[in-house]
Design a protein around this nucleic acid. Sequence first.
RNA 1: CGGGGUGUAGCGCAGCCUGGUAGCGCAUCUGGUUUGGGACCAGAGGGCCGGGGGUUCGAAUCCCUCCACCCCGACCA
Length: 569
Amino acid sequence: MRYSRFFAPTLRDDPADAEVISHKLLLRAGYIRRVTSGVYDFLPMGLRVLRKIEQVVREEMNRAGAQELLMPMVQPGELWEKSGRWEKYGPELLRITDRHGHISCLGPTHEEVICDLVSRELRSYKQLPMNLYQIQSKFRDEIRPRFGLMRGREFVMKDAYSFHADEACLEAEYRNMFETYKRIFTRLGLKFRPVEADTGAIGGSASHEFHVLAESGEDLIAHCSACEYAANVEMAESGRNIPAGEPAGMAGVNTPNATSAEDVAAYLKADIAQLVKTLVYHVSGGPEDGKIIAACIRGDDQLQEIKLVRALHATGVEMASDEEIKAVGGVTGFVGPVGLSCRRLFDDTLRGAVGLVAGANRRDMHITGLDVGRDESCAEFADLRQTRAGDGCPKCGGAMELSRGIEVGHVFALGICYSEPMEVMFQNREGKRSTATMGCYGIGVSRLMAAVVEQCNDENGIAWPLNLAPFQVALITMSKSEAGIEASEKIYRQLLDAGIEVLWDDRKERPGVKFKDAELMGLPLHIIVGDRSLENGVIEIRSRSGEKVEVALDAVLQEVQSLLPGSGI
RNA sequence: CGGGGUGUAGCGCAGCCUGGUAGCGCAUCUGGUUUGGGACCAGAGGGCCGGGGGUUCGAAUCCCUCCACCCCGACCA
């Protein structure tokens, strides 16, 4: 491709509305442009990279025995009514009505469509197992799209769905996909970590997320410094960590205007770990739907709401209003477990803890000497706190660490939560009708593009790995001489004939501009044709990372090929 | 939806407080001089100052309202 004809508008300044490095660089280097909130154009360079990522994913999925197909983006509403998700999914599902008044939606995921397809064709256990996948655009009307490709509303996803005659077969495929994902992210050159995860809205039994480690990641993951244990903090089992208080009788104490745990601890000169924070929530979904509950944790801990939701078998929780707190006998700012008229859950850490300080449910009052085991005989305990760095690993006792991650993949063992309502049935070995058991496996392909940039960049721009770069070679012609043009033409032809992707910067620009653009775009190899080296009969070849060699004009192709292992020579 | 912020040329910004009909840098176009790390000189084009309403002789500027975008929280690949 000749740069003079190529549509890759680069920007000198960072766009003001971009926050994270991948968003800034992908905009500046001419890979993407925003169309509307969370929706992007992939310019020619961006599409080239996206296709390369897709190809890695496709090759590994095919190798793992999955089959590619393509399903529609528009899906009929009835299918979602059948699975029960028309009600459950919420406003993230963009619902549309056609001219006939027929209700459809834009697919945020494809369990319904694939189940519908498979249920029509599946007859015998002999057809199983089967793993079908697609690489396709999804639409989720996200509350807050942000960070460019990292959280779009429309995005490219690889989604795979497997069907099995029994649990053991599903487990085998789950492991197969787990290993496949490790291969994919390794081939993409990423530092990543698989972690145990919540199953969330998709549902099912087992689930792992794959996180690319990056400061800009939106997720917090907890991982052991000594063993392999790693989990999303939403999920990570936390150690016991009982505060070391002295037993005492319960007593009331004045704490004027001290509402936060920090204030109370400071006022009473107590260790903040001895405090009990009582958080009051309004529950939605599950057996406690619409009720108010209280959750108690240590003063220096954070409540992990997802854990609370799971403990209640609910779908969500929301901080209760002042009125709701009052209705159960609490006083905002001075809420404590003693005397509340709602269901109360205590974090495991408080089991056996003594000499605690808690709100007294009276203005400007706390109580001291609380002993949950003694004073709350029918207390319920659950793991509610968020894991902190330094906590003991639940598997080996080693120290836990926290890192930020970008979720780029997620595997679920679904069981029959979709196949049952969608009636994906087959005749088993005994001749009986049986429901297929399912797994599903997602990879955020366009998000991966951002994740790679988050890990591969420097002060000059993007630094693509060789196998993902939109062009492997930037041919930079600085010479205006006839010999220089001729040499450039020759190299350009040779590389094209050899199947090497080359962007020939034939623009009438000064050398600095061309270097800056090639570096900003992140092209891995730069071939420089300039009068200075031409006079010595050589051409300069530099890598994006700085190494440089000089070779004779006739040796350029060979040298480039040696630097591009597996480039299709 | 709640909290904070921003909308002025393709990009980055000033002007607004204290109303007088729009400016700077980069980019673009023309001519010239340059040419191994984002050149220089001369000239030029490009703006319903986010939209609507109001106040005023007069609004980018003051008031009301709507919209869009960004950041922090609940969603997820």
